[in-house]
Structures are given as C-alpha cells and as structure tokens.
Design a protein around this nucleic acid. Structure first.
Lengths: 352, 352
DNA sequence: CTGAAAGCGCTTACAG
DNA sequence: CTGAAAGCGCTTACAG
C-alpha cells in the first residue's frame, strides 16, 4: 500500500474515486456530471483548498487568447499616445509566453469615421477582450453595445463614459486633477491676478475638459480666492489659431498670472509666450510630459506638468484583461491613476 | 509522408536527427554532446529563432526557486517599510504560480546584530536570490561577500552601497530628490529667510542623508540663493529629544521659513509646530506618505512629502530577481524610482 | 454520466 | 556521446 502524494486533479480524482476527466468537468462547471459526484468533488476541492496550476492549464489548452486595442494613432500632434502604446507593448511581451496575443487598431483623432471602421475591424475576427479609448462618445457606445451583445469584456483607457458596462476604467481622476492644478496656481497669485483656462482641442465637448475645469474652479472656490477665471476654447490646434486667440488677451495691462492648459498642448501656449514680450511671465500649468512640453519645462516656460503615468495606463489595461480572462480575478471598475506633479527638477526620473 | 508541424525541441530534434534529450543538453550548455551535433543543433536553433516555452520549462522541472528578503521590521516608528513589504507580497502572489517562493527576514533598525543574525539565517538554507536593504554598511558588505562567493544574486532596495556587485539597486535618486526639495523650498522664501535641514535618525552617518542634503544645498547654490542653511542632527527619535533640539531654534525672532526633514519622521517636527505658537508657520517638507505624515499633510502642517513609490520598490525588487533567474533577462544595475511630490490635493490617489 | 488515452513543451533520471 | 521513457498538472476529443 504505497500512497504517493499526488498533486492537483490527480489527488482530487483519487480521493473521489473518479478520473481526472470528471474532476475537470466539475472545476469548469461543465455539464454531464451527476449531482452526487459533483458535490463530492466540490467538497474535496474545498478541503484541499485546491489552486489550479495556471501554467499547466495554459500549456494543455492550446488556445490563444486574443486581445484588441483601439486607441488614437501617434502623430506629432498626439504624441501622448506613444506612452500608453509602449505600456501595452510591454504587457504584451510579458504575457505572450502565456498564450495571449494583442492586436493594435489605431484611429485618427480628427476623424470619427476611422474609429467606427477600426471598431468594425476588431469585431470581424474572433476576440476575447478589448481595450479602447472612448474618445467619440456616440461611436464608442455603438461599439460597446456590440461587445455587450457578444459578451466581450472591454476596458476604457484614459477617458471614460459614465454608465457603461466596461470591465474597468483606467485613467486619471479628472476633477481632482484639475483641483490640484488650482492649488499649484496659488504659488503665482497676487491680489490683482486673473487666471486663464485654455482648451485646445477638436473635441471640446469632451467630458474630460468639463471635469478638469470644474475641479480647477472648485479649488479656488473652496479657498475663497476671488480671482477671476477666464476661459478660451481653441478649436483648431495649429499654431496660427492659437496665437490669434491668445494675443488679444495679453495686452500691456494684462493681469493674467496663471495659465492652465487642460491637455497636452501646453507647448503651443509656451511657444506663444516665447515669442511674445510680456512684462512678467505667467505661471503655466499643463498636462503630460510629451517631448515638446519637456523642452519648455526645462527652459522654464512651463512650470508644472500634471501627469497620470500614461505608460502604466497602457500596461494596466492589458494586464487587467489578462487577470480577468486568465486568472479569473475580480476587477475594480475604477482604477484611478495617481496625479503626478512634474517639474524641471524631477522630470528626468519620471516614468512616462 | 506526413510532416506534422512539430513545435520547439521536437522540431529541432527532428531536423537534427537526434532526440529531444540531446537538444535539451545543447540548450542548457550541458556536457556530453559531440562538437559536431552541438553545432548542428545550435544552427537549427538560430534558424528557427527558437524561444523556449517558459511555462513548460517551469512545469517540467519540479524545482522551486527560493528568494529571501532582508528588510527592517515594520514598527510604529518605521512604518515606511510596510509599503515595500506589501509590494513584495504582491509580487510573490503574482509569481508563486510559476514555482517561486519568497521568505521574509526582518531586522531591527536599532540593532545591527539583528541584521547579521538574519543574514546568517538566510544563508543557512538554500536560496537562489536575495533582496536586501543594506542599511548597515559593514554588516551588509560582510553578507554580500558571502553571496558573491556562493554566486547568489542580490538586489539592493531603498538604500545602496556604491561599488558592490549587486544585481541592481532599486530606490530613489537621492541627490536629485534633495534637489527637488530645494526647489520646493523657494515657494516660501523671503529675503531674510533661513532654511533648516533636520536629520532624525539613529544611523546619521548614512550615505542617504549626505546625498539628500547635498542635493538640497546644490539647488540653492545653482540658483544663487544666499539664504543660510542650518542643520540639526537628532540622534534619538523620541518626541522629547526632538522638541528639546528644535525649541531653541524657534525663538520669537526666528526667521526659519523652511524646514526640510530628510526622512519619514517629518511628523515629529509637525507635532512640534502644532504645539508651539509661532507667528508664521514655516514651510515643512518631508519624506514618505506614512500615516502620521498623511494626517499632517491633510491639516496643512506639512506642505510637501517627497515619495519614491515604496510599494513599487518592493514589487520591482522581487520581479527583478524573477526576470533574471527565470527569464534570464538582462537587468539594469540602477533602477531609479520617480521623485513624486505629494500634497494635500493629490494624496488620496497616491500609490503608496 | 464517466473513463481511458493522448498530448501541451519541456526536464529528469537512467540505460547503453 | 546519445536515446527511450516517464512525468510535470492540466485539457481535449472520443468512446461507451
């Protein structure tokens, strides 16, 4: 009577007096097992506190899990998206040995129809999970409805749409991010100061900008700061458009001491400041350590960049699907990124 | 003639007209293979751009890889170490399915001999890799020499010793961290201001404090700020000792407008400020979002906490060994953490 | 409803 | 110096 110490399904099978095939059926809730043996096996599984060996599982099932990613293409103007892309690639190399595969689909931030076309391409072939930036609200909703119908889980990255069935949102806490910008503003406030909020984007209606600005104003209100807040929306992202809009605001008697740019295009404002002769440089707060911003941070025209670890956002978006699909872990619906303050002094060590 | 598409070692073996055992020998550079077949197999491996299946490898070799961690015990006074510990635990659960095992060894920050005793305990049983905080220089060196001799790789966390054979250092860039503190100081500087650097620790001689203070002073020098910098070393970390030392510095005519505490014990200074009636609260800059500091950040007695993602330091230390030992990846000798600025406004989202 | 067998891509003795 | 075989802990048809 030698009882070898068996492991896993074998040990369960031995104790239950069945074969491992039956054990496997119970583990995966597959039909074709009598209630009696199902109960017996379930009990043993609990007794043993059985944890499946994931390596063996992935090795045995030849299946490849397919993930798709739908984000803006990286251009000179939208360099921001390079960082999430890097994070996605890093996650991919990390999990590809375990039988996962990631396909990229890029859309044009200036063209809603490109989003729809790419979304369609994703659903044209089999896919087990999706990461997307739901920049265009209506188009994104049409897509997620299809996903819901086909029971394909999806994760929002960088932007969110409230009230969706997304597995998770991975991105900044927008309101609080603007709130911090409000705080940073105070370092430059004098009695007569005015503040200026600048939105430079083609999709100004975005939930993102509203939330961010609301947070910014909330800080000032909470601290009873009476300084007026101006705001300009610049719909075209080219340099002439930006200059044309800003010039009238910075006359000789301008008291704008703080400029808050609500996205990564603060370098356009810095460029304006660079070419304009002002008696006193306003404090300039922007978003994201993209290359052009980095230069202006170094030379002092931009004072603060608020960042939300874009590389990590990309990484986490993939890993979240991995954890849900492969490890069956529960997932937090909101995964807020930290609100990082990047200055000239710490920028070299920032993980972008 | 049906040629099935074989994978991995099988395909290599088929092409080389040998068995997979021989292929395995070549892959692992084991002896007992004729030069001729070794060459033939090596060539095929290159042609195929063969990537071993790590799952299969770990599954087949029953071996368990053992890691040991040597860090300070978490106490009320050294709560900082709770965060790296959490990161280590997170990494452990992530990699334990792949046959890794982590053992913890804690030493007492007030007792060098406890470090040595724990170091000895680590080497008493088989171990494949070590993470350690080399707080006590001489003791740590004695230990790492043993590791060198036994060819056990080790990673430094949070603190480093220059010129060692450590696989990697994972922690803050100290000088630059102090430099940033210098920058933050300037928000409170008036013409007559003095600045105060406070070291509160039992091991004042540490390389860490020297570097940090050097960076702090360097910022002021680089920007031609003529304000005097005082410095006090407080060797005992109890409240009375701290109060006794600080009191004389904050007389009625004190012009100290900035206090920079070089480690996580800024809450002790905050407590002093809380109980002392000063005409004008100095700007207080400290390190690490430990609980006691968090409270003073919220109520405004501490203005800035500089943090270096301690949880992530722990996580990375283990993952670095994993990547080296299991995936045979090359490792950066310096893995500098970002220099994060935590304020009342963004503290809720900080990943500590 | 249950089982016997092959196989995932490797490693590990052991035999010759 | 090389090979034949068993096995790691699972999954997947297929048979009954």
């Amino acid at each position: 009577m030698k009882k070898k110490e068996l492991q896993g399904v074998k040990e369960i099978a031995r104790r239950a007096n069945v074969t491992i095939a039956t054990v496997d059926r119970v583990i995966h809730n597959r039909p074709g097992v009598s209630e009696k043996t199902r109960e017996k096996i379930t009990k043993i599984i609990e007794e043993l506190n059985y944890q499946p060996n994931l390596l063996a599982r992935r090795l045995a099932s030849g299946k490849i899990i397919k993930l798709a990613v739908l984000i803006p293409a990286v251009t000179a103007e939208t360099e921001f998206w390079d960082a999430p892309l890097r994070g996605i690639r890093r996650a991919e190399t990390e999990i590809s040995p375990y039988g996962l595969q990631v396909s990229m689909f890029f859309f044009d931030l200036n063209d809603k129809s490109s989003f729809t076309a790419q979304a369609r391409a994703i659903l044209a072939s089999p896919v087990d999970g999706v990461v997307l930036a739901p920049t265009f609200v209506a188009e994104a909703q049409a897509f997620t409805e299809d996903c819901n119908r086909q029971r394909i889980p999806y994760v929002f990255i960088d932007t969110t749409i409230p009230g969706q069935a997304n597995l998770s949102y991975i991105g900044p806490p927008l309101f609080q991010s603007g709130y911090l910008a409000g705080k940073l503003s105070t370092y430059a406030l004098r009695e007569a100061s005015q503040l200026l909020v600048v939105n430079i984007a083609t999709a100004i209606e975005s939930y993102t900008y509203q939330q961010t600005e609301a947070g910014f104003r909330a800080y000032l209100a909470d601290h009873h700061l009476p300084h007026p807040v101006l705001r300009v929306d610049i719909h075209q992202t080219d340099e002439p458009s930006v200059f044309r809009t800003l010039q009238p605001l910075f006359g000789d008697s301008s008291t704008i001491d703080v400029i808050f740019v609500t996205n990564s295009r603060s370098f356009l404002v810095a460029r304006f400041l660079e070419k304009t002769d002002l008696p006193r440089k306003p404090l300039l707060i922007g978003y994201d350590l993209v290359q052009e911003n980095a230069g202006y941070l170094t030379n002092g025209l931009i004072d603060f960049l608020i960042c939300h670890q874009p590389e990590d956002q990309g990484y986490r978006s993939i890993m979240t699907l991995y954890q849900s699909l492969v490890l069956a872990k529960p997932i937090d619906k909101e995964q807020y990124m930290p609100i990082d303050i990047v200055t000239r002094e710490n920028q070299a060590f920032y993980r972008n």
